[in-house]
Nucleic acid binder design. Sequence first.
DNA 1: AATGAATGAGCATTCATTCAT
DNA 2: AATGAATGAATGCTCATTCAT
Lengths: 195, 195, 195, 195
Amino acid sequence: MIMGRKPNTEQRRGQIVEALRAEMAEIGYERASIKSIAARAGLAPGLLHYHFPSKEAILLELVEALICQADNRYEELASPQATPVELLGTFVKARVGLGGKPEDEQVRTWVNLMAEAVNQDVVKERVAAWLSGSLEELAANFRAANVKHPEAKAAMLVSMILGAFQLHALSVEGVPRGYAAEEIGGWLRQVCATG
Amino acid sequence: MIMGRKPNTEQRRGQIVEALRAEMAEIGYERASIKSIAARAGLAPGLLHYHFPSKEAILLELVEALICQADNRYEELASPQATPVELLGTFVKARVGLGGKPEDEQVRTWVNLMAEAVNQDVVKERVAAWLSGSLEELAANFRAANVKHPEAKAAMLVSMILGAFQLHALSVEGVPRGYAAEEIGGWLRQVCATG
Amino acid sequence: MIMGRKPNTEQRRGQIVEALRAEMAEIGYERASIKSIAARAGLAPGLLHYHFPSKEAILLELVEALICQADNRYEELASPQATPVELLGTFVKARVGLGGKPEDEQVRTWVNLMAEAVNQDVVKERVAAWLSGSLEELAANFRAANVKHPEAKAAMLVSMILGAFQLHALSVEGVPRGYAAEEIGGWLRQVCATG
Amino acid sequence: MIMGRKPNTEQRRGQIVEALRAEMAEIGYERASIKSIAARAGLAPGLLHYHFPSKEAILLELVEALICQADNRYEELASPQATPVELLGTFVKARVGLGGKPEDEQVRTWVNLMAEAVNQDVVKERVAAWLSGSLEELAANFRAANVKHPEAKAAMLVSMILGAFQLHALSVEGVPRGYAAEEIGGWLRQVCATG
DNA sequence: AATGAATGAGCATTCATTCAT
DNA sequence: AATGAATGAATGCTCATTCAT
């Protein structure tokens, strides 16, 4: 009976995707080469094309992983019996709440991912679809809270988060620490209160 | 009197910078090659390095041009006797006010510029310095309007604009047309009224 | 047990260095291009940068190889119980003794290497250090033979060899075959005899 | 009556040749570009090809100038009633006698010229022809002084000078200052005395 | 004579991808 | 599964030469 090797494909794919993520946080997608990704993953360069058909394919899997991660973070924080307004606050917390050093890297990863999405159609489609879904859900919550222009509010909320990430990644002086969570929260309360 | 050939460097530099801008709007900085920029400008590839020492130098000149353009747009709209609150509104209008097709390209240019800034240090420094200056001015206006946490408010305002640009560039469905100007304006009014 | 592909870098590096050597003998370092070196080695151009980080790195390895070769030739000829005067004669023989067609190529290689050393600092340093060591050893032998101004004599001996190589490489008419070995030998005998 | 401009071609050609000489002393012929030569000469790049058909043509004129200069230096020092032995000493003095800082540059110029001669056929031919003439004259003097193997002695003398130049250009440690004039002179005396 | 722009081939180098082992 | 070699197209850049003024 032939036993063969226990397939470790999933582990390898994870390693590779994680290595790309780290590279993207540091230098961006274009500057990351198969060789540098392999080096970071501790693998031979040739192996990357055994597990993935192309560099783009690794990126697409990374997109899935990041989206999944983000969705999970939200779902973990969201209690089933929460009100729409509470859910909106939870969304903000799930996106900008963490703080600390590792977040820097996460932010850079996301910013570089978005940058790539703007120019690479396959990525753009996937990210846009995901964001579209988020917008819909957010809009539904705003609507349930009787907020006017719920779609616009949802778009604004997402814009605030995206923009805060970018400003953070640019290391601009004069930006108060933790301003985003605070201010977005304030905006949210005001918007939901006023209607 | 020896005349020789009249220099046309300024014109050519302008052509080249504009070609890079167009390329960046379409495919981003990394994907734009000297060859493709030259083709768009209708010039021989070698000529680009006659007028610029490097590809990066073209980018840096483009950064200056875009910053200058943005600053001018604000200054043109800002009346000298405007109140701080009015100036804040003017800032928003100068950034997100235009509308129309050509704006799409402008937004894509800016988004790709910011993306490049995140990973290329020289660009990052220049952009961060500029943004820092904007933040300072905005904060001063918020402060003059007796708004609490003026630095945070300034950072939030800039974040909203950056984020709105990115969301726009991603062509996400479900984003209402012109939401940004409307919503940022609303936030601004509310924030300045409450203090 | 995973085997993968066996490394053949050492062999390839040798091939490449040898190809550069041949190119240098024929056209010099600057005129030798990665493409021409690759063609001579029968390899794809891209492969050269897989095995070496740069063209300069190939040159530096060639320098080492040539120096090593030259040192070996001397050490093989030098008997352990030889007198200082004999060792000086051996040195001359090791450098100019061979004769025959292949020597032409060797001489051209060395002359082009020295030419490159004059203008390329890394090469210059290495070559100068090696020559300095040779001078020291030669001077010690002259000193042991009670020759006056041993350092000057050593420098003169090396100059004679370098100059003879250059004259040879220039294919000047009227230069008697084998004059260098003969005349340097004569000088050496006279110098060591007189003191 | 048409007057036109007084032609200044000769002056310009001189400027250009001198600029190439300086560039060669500093970085060598290959690394010297038309642009850098023009900059050093204080001229527009395009002008170089007005006065010379090619970069090689400048080099060839430089070769003529240097040869002419060297010949003049010898002829100035050589008294008409000098003995053959004295003329040989004069030759050495004319080549290696000067000393001082500017000589460093001259030496580097010559060494780089010889390096170029080895690989560029037109230059090689010219230099070889000139050296051949020098060898003949030197051999005649050795012969007149009843020295054995006059051609070999002449070749040795030239080799010594070429080699000393190269050793000098390599900035090798442990080389006594002014060794060449001293040692070549000694060799000459010994050789002419013994016969 | 002179200027400075323009051209296009060539350079070293990078890199995603493929292949032999 | 895995390794490391191999490929060849592409990139930014340099440069001798030509050209319009």
